[in-house]
Simulated scan of single mutants.
Amino acid sequence: MLTNHHIDLTAAEVASLWSNYMSDTSAICMFDFFLIHVEDTEIRSLLEFAMKLSQAHVKKLQSIFNEENHPIPEGFSISVDVNRECPRLFTDDFHLFFIQNLGKMGVEFYATALSNCARLDICEYFTECLHESSKLFNKATEIMLSKGSFIRAPFIPASKKVEYVQKQGYLAGWFGQKRPLNAVEMSQIYFNMIQNQLGRTFLMGFSQVAKLKKVREYMKRGRDISDKHVEIFGSLLSQEFLPSASAWDTMPTDSTVPPFSDKLMMFHTSVLNSVGIAHYGRSLGVSPRRDLGSIYVRLTAEVLQYAEDGMTIMIDNKWFEQPPQATNRDKLANG
């Protein structure tokens, strides 16, 4: 459908475009440093593919912001936020795991962004990004499977027939006998455990190289929270005699030289916090067993407090770039 007048971007579209720019500029910084040290040719090719996608996104986003007379966010840059002379911090296996997770988060982000769009040109942009993220995820998964580093979710026997829940005891979990986990609950537990393993490795590496003591302590605290959550989710599976994904144990190197600015590392940590909170909320909504709901509420509260403390550090150091916001009408009315 063509229109003969200009349609302004909605708040939802501005929010998605702004967040996309921040995420892709930060990802470019990570890819640049990873590419300096990656040794595996397949993983290098995947990193180069991801880098090209992010660079194309940034160029397109800059064009959109200019056309709409919106300021281009500062975001992140290699020249400011990356020290290319540093030794390797993460292994090739982690680079691959990071790319796969980035594709996974991209699919979620772009699907949400697309569903909130009204302008067709913005819809088309996010549709293309969604396809690219799917391709990136599939490529990473294929390589992980070929290398034997992909940890599958637990298997369960095939159901013999379709059944309906007959008793309220299906919801029980605090007292009395608990039913076995259903497949939906199991998939959420596994997913959250994998995400926390990624966060634990990231924060472990960041805690070794952060310049400011307060940032190092914050990363150590996050590492310990992620480790505790991995143990909680693993125990839920082990109680059902199901294998956990704890075999994934790729750790950072012993480098203590900072390859990234504290600002960039704090931003990545804030993204992990936001994604973790969203995933816990989703898991809470599809987990009928009451004990699981209680666990997700408790863990969410812990991550919320950790995220707020991180925002305080970012604000104190003037690292938190403010998203576009509504006009303060009271301030205008008061002159």
Rank of each mutant, 00 (worst) to 15 (best):
T3M: 11
H5N: 03
L9T: 01
L17H: 00
W18S: 05
W18N: 04
M22D: 04
T25P: 10
S26W: 00
I28Y: 01
I28V: 13
F34Q: 08
V38E: 06
S45N: 13
F49D: 11
Q55K: 09
H57A: 08
V58G: 02
L61P: 02
N69E: 12
H70R: 07
P73E: 03
E74Q: 10
I78G: 05
S79N: 14
V80Y: 14
R84C: 09
C86G: 08
C86S: 15
P87F: 03
P87I: 09
T91Y: 02
N101K: 08
G103L: 03
G106E: 06
T112C: 08
T112W: 06
A113L: 08
N116Y: 02
N116W: 01
L120T: 13
C129L: 04
K135Q: 12
L136C: 11
N138V: 07
E142P: 03
I143D: 01
I143R: 10
M144H: 02
M144P: 02
G148H: 03
F150M: 13
I151F: 06
P157F: 01
Y164T: 07
Y170D: 14
Y170C: 12
F175Y: 07
K178V: 04
E185M: 06
L198G: 04
L198I: 14
R200G: 03
T201M: 14
Q208S: 04
A210D: 03
K214E: 15
Y218F: 11
R221I: 10
R223E: 11
H229S: 13
S235W: 05
L236E: 06
Q239G: 08
E240G: 01
F241G: 12
S244P: 03
T250S: 10
P252L: 11
D254E: 15
S255D: 10
S255R: 08
P259G: 11
S261C: 06
D262P: 04
H268W: 06
S274V: 15
G276N: 10
R282D: 11
S283H: 04
V286D: 09
V286S: 14
R290M: 11
L292H: 02
G293H: 00
Y296P: 12
Y296M: 10
L299G: 02
T300C: 13
A301G: 07
V303L: 11
Y306S: 13
Y306C: 08
A307D: 11
D309P: 02
N317G: 08
F320G: 04
K331V: 14
L332S: 15
N334I: 07
N334E: 13
G335D: 14
